[in-house]
Design a binder for these strands. Structure first.
Lengths: 161, 161
DNA sequence: TATTGTTATACTCTATAACTATA
DNA sequence: TATAGTTATAGAGTATAACAATA
């Protein structure tokens, strides 16, 4: 269900196409758009997260869902989705996958329309491993942007929202 | 080819499903991941960009390509793609679309394998309008995160990447 | 009537592979 | 043999709509 390890980490490998020393062109107005830099950083983060978490085959959105279920057991799909900004149709299919892997269980709540979400014991164990890998990713990210800049960015973005 | 104006800006409209005052759950470790905040901000930026640029039907990646072609006329697809980190297969199809709209022209370069990219006069005119809308988006973004924070984030990210 | 969750469709973006035509 | 560009396929993520069961 998941793509195999990214080739990025194996750049210039026997199979990989040689990457010529990137000719960088003028960015013009792009240099004045915060969104451009945010996007470039976000792509790096996403890629490194996927590579680092590859042993557990977990993607960023799945990780966020597992964390929020673990921290708020018994909540509905609607609550999880609203917290993380994940669309309910997408979350339903994501939970199908997490349930298939026996990490998450959908129980029946008081309101018969909704499900109460929990991690299974197996899910708790998996999440412990996942958290260790996620911490490793975060350390790489800090090294990538610079430890000081990482702290400054974190402070600015956290106080914002 | 492009989706109609997002419903987000028309939240709680007659057709839209009512959004209950979002119940926010504990984020746990997510609060220590820079990538989480970057991702949330990136989603806002992307959505606002698409909404603001909707009159010209231009998406962020298209905008970046138009800008870089305009600032570096005559370059190859490979050079544009490397500068912006856009995969060549994706760029080829994006240029098909921009050529179809008569904004971009692919000329033959010295090397018969490559194309030299230019904006057409029509493309130049369109880009002028697009730049005005993009500036409006950037002002909204600054208001959204706070003008001071916007400047701080810009400085941090620009000096980094 | 409104909400929760589900299924389905369509489009964007990313990742790959295979192909052509050149070099 | 390698490069520039194209075409094709698959998966993730997002946006919508429509539906069943329940409130």
């Amino acid at each position: 269900m998941q793509r195999r390890r990214s080739v990025r980490s194996a750049a210039n490998s026997k199979k990989g196409r040689r990457v010529p020393s990137a000719k960088m062109l003028a960015l013009d107005q792009l240099d004045n758009h915060l969104g451009y830099f945010v996007r470039r950083l976000q792509i790096w983060v996403f890629q490194d997260f996927v590579d680092t978490l590859n042993p557990m085959r977990v993607r960023p959105a799945q990780y966020s869902v597992l964390l929020v279920i673990a921290a708020n057991p018994g909540n509905s799909q609607a609550a999880i989705g609203q917290t993380l900004g994940i669309e309910r149709a997408r979350l339903a299919r994501m939970l199908d996958e997490l349930e298939r892997r026996k990490w998450v269980a959908r129980a029946n709540g008081s309101d018969a329309r909704s499900h109460s979400l929990y991690l299974t014991p197996e899910g708790e164990k998996a999440l412990a491993k996942i958290k260790r890998l996620a911490a490793r990713h975060e350390a790489r990210l800090a090294a990538h942007v610079g430890v000081k800049r990482h702290a400054q960015l974190m402070a600015l973005l956290r106080e914002f929202g």
